[in-house]
Design a binder for these strands. Structure first.
Length: 227
DNA sequence: CTTTGGATCGTCT
DNA sequence: GACGATCCAAAGG
């Protein structure tokens, strides 16, 4: 099928799709498409974060100015800033008033790779880095595997920052949409503990599409904090 | 290949 | 005042 026909097949996910527990939403989010203008990426890795009963969740200690979006209507994007330089994006779920979210950890680039490379290069240039490998060529390179492989890289590639916090993925208000193009979630996703957290690190709430090269490669050992 | 340290700032204690 | 749902480059094997 042509690229145009493939795009025509993309249908938005209804509000009710998101009105569920993060543990229910996470597996069915796999293989859905995140779309922004000419850019599109397939979700290949996620992590579930619950609210009050999940010590690793930003919402664990209740509602604050930062995590307010997590308590809002489902189907929106919760974007937060961390490590003094990175953004991460979550899909908000559960009924309004109840916190819950699924962190997007990796996309397989589908459309707009040029734009994604440019966005990543611009980010690197902003901090004095070199152009991203592969930028400038029009074809796919091996480096494209890393274009959106990781929660902060994904935000760089899709141009997600402060302004996208609260963007509605159902209506597209805010510039971002989440759509189904007919590719089903994996019958048996890969499972592991969540990355980069200290609390509840053993819960198997990280899921990915088995065999996909864009899944973030976990460090050999989680960062050990010295004493 | 693996491991380490630096960058950098909003948020909550 | 500490530290984080991270990334990158450099150094070491």
């Amino acid at each position: 099928m042509s690229a145009a026909a493939a795009r025509a097949r993309r249908v938005p996910l209804p509000r009710g799709f998101y009105e569920v527990d993060p543990l229910v939403l996470a597996p069915v989010l796999l293989n859905k498409l995140l779309v922004r203008g000419g850019r599109a990426g397939r979700i290949v890795e996620v992590e579930a974060y619950r609210g009050g009963e999940d010590p690793a969740s930003h919402a664990f200690r209740g509602r604050t100015a930062r995590n307010a979006t997590m308590f809002g209507p489902p189907g929106r994007l919760y974007v937060y800033f961390t490590y003094g330089m990175h953004f991460c994006a979550n899909v908000v779920c559960m009924p309004e008033g109840v916190a819950g979210a699924v962190l997007l950890r990796a996309l397989a680039p589908v459309d707009g790779l040029e734009e994604m490379r440019a966005a990543r290069t611009a980010w690197a240039a902003g901090r004095g880095g070199r152009p991203a490998p592969g930028s400038g060529s029009g074809s796919r390179s091996a480096c494209d595997r890393d274009l959106a492989s990781g929660p902060a890289r994904l935000c760089q590639a899709m141009g997600i920052g402060r302004d996208e916090d609260g963007a509605d993925l159902v209506t597209g208000r805010g510039g971002l949409r989440l759509v189904d193009d007919g590719v089903p979630p994996p019958a048996t996703p890969g499972v592991s503990g969540r990355v980069g957290i200290r609390q509840a690190a053993d819960l198997p709430w990280r899921l990915w599409v088995p065999g996909d090269p864009n899944v973030s490669r976990a460090r050999a050992r989680p960062a050990v904090h010295r004493r």
